[in-house]
């Protein structure tokens, strides 16, 4: 193969730019406070792990993570079930109102979450759902489901009709067809949805702050937002907090990065 310096250089520069903030975050987190004040860019003289120790042992970070995990599992799971059922019906059945349901559901993708805060807050106060996992899971599931339906309908429609016809011949019910024929063929888009939706829920700050006010229910993002505060100048400690908060998704990504990328690619349009 010909040596191609220019493309290599371009890719390397792009990769460096993509990587620098993460590197800065990690390197700074390992620096002593005094050293950072004196030198903001250099390599640490000695690694200081105390900031990580403080985050891990002096804050309820594991509680926050557990809360985030509960919300991610609950809302992504709920949304998948709801979206699969609906998308299958919309893609593969004839019924009155089908197009209307799809249009409305898709249009809801355009609702900026911020506009829902007032009415939902009033509703939730009346129903006693503020600071409950169930209440928050419903909101997140609602927010991520329109995109899921949209993506799955597109995918289910692209499946060959013969497969489904064959299952019908065998006397399978719709639910059985969905479970045994359609879903096994749809692992890639399902993976896409799990990834995209999990990122959305894990990373959300707005809803988390407003609907999970109880300290025992705080999510990672809400926790570190308070943690980071606005008036702090202990940057290395802040960076350690950010690094710990980013760690679960980073580790998941690096471990399963092939699946991540493949899943996203599968969900991508033609």
């Amino acid at each position: 193969m010909r040596l191609r310096p220019l493309p290599h250089l371009a890719l390397s520069i792009a990769s460096a730019i993509a990587l620098i903030p993460t590197v800065f975050m990690l390197v700074t987190a390992l620096k002593a406070q005094e050293e950072y004040q004196a030198d903001k860019t250099g390599w640490p003289d000695a690694f200081v792990f105390d900031h990580f120790r403080q985050i891990l042992f002096d804050t309820p970070i594991f509680l926050w993570m557990a809360n985030s995990l509960i919300l991610v599992a609950g809302s992504v799971g709920l949304s998948l079930v709801v979206a699969c059922l609906a998308a299958y019906a919309i893609a593969r059945m004839e019924f009155r109102g089908r197009d209307a349901i799809l249009t409305v559901s898709t249009a809801l993708m355009a609702v900026p979450p911020v506009v829902l805060i007032v009415p939902l807050f009033v509703l939730y106060t009346r129903l006693g759902l503020i600071s409950t996992y169930g209440g928050a899971i419903l909101i997140y599931a609602g927010l991520i489901t329109p995109f899921s339906v949209y993506l799955l309908v597109t995918f289910f429609r692209s499946l060959p009709q013969e497969l489904i016809d064959a299952a019908v011949m065998d006397g399978a019910t719709h639910l059985q067809i969905l479970m045994r024929v359609v879903l096994p063929l749809s692992l890639a888009p399902l993976l896409t949805l799990v990834i995209v939706n999990a990122l959305f829920v894990w990373n959300d700050l707005l809803m988390a702050v407003i609907f999970l006010q109880d300290d025992a229910k705080k999510t990672v993002m809400a926790g570190i937002a308070v943690f980071q505060g606005r008036y702090n100048n202990q940057i290395p400690l802040t960076m350690a907090g950010m690094a710990v908060a980013a760690a679960p998704m980073l580790i998941l990504y690096l471990t399963f990065q092939r699946h991540f990328v493949r899943g996203l690619m599968a969900g991508a349009v033609k």
Binding site: Q54, P60, D215, V226, Y231
Partner: peptide, 17 residues
Amino acid sequence: GAGMMDRRRLLQAGAGL
């Protein structure tokens, strides 16, 4: 506001919960 707490204080607050 909350942001005004410095980190040490926050850490104590967390532990007290």
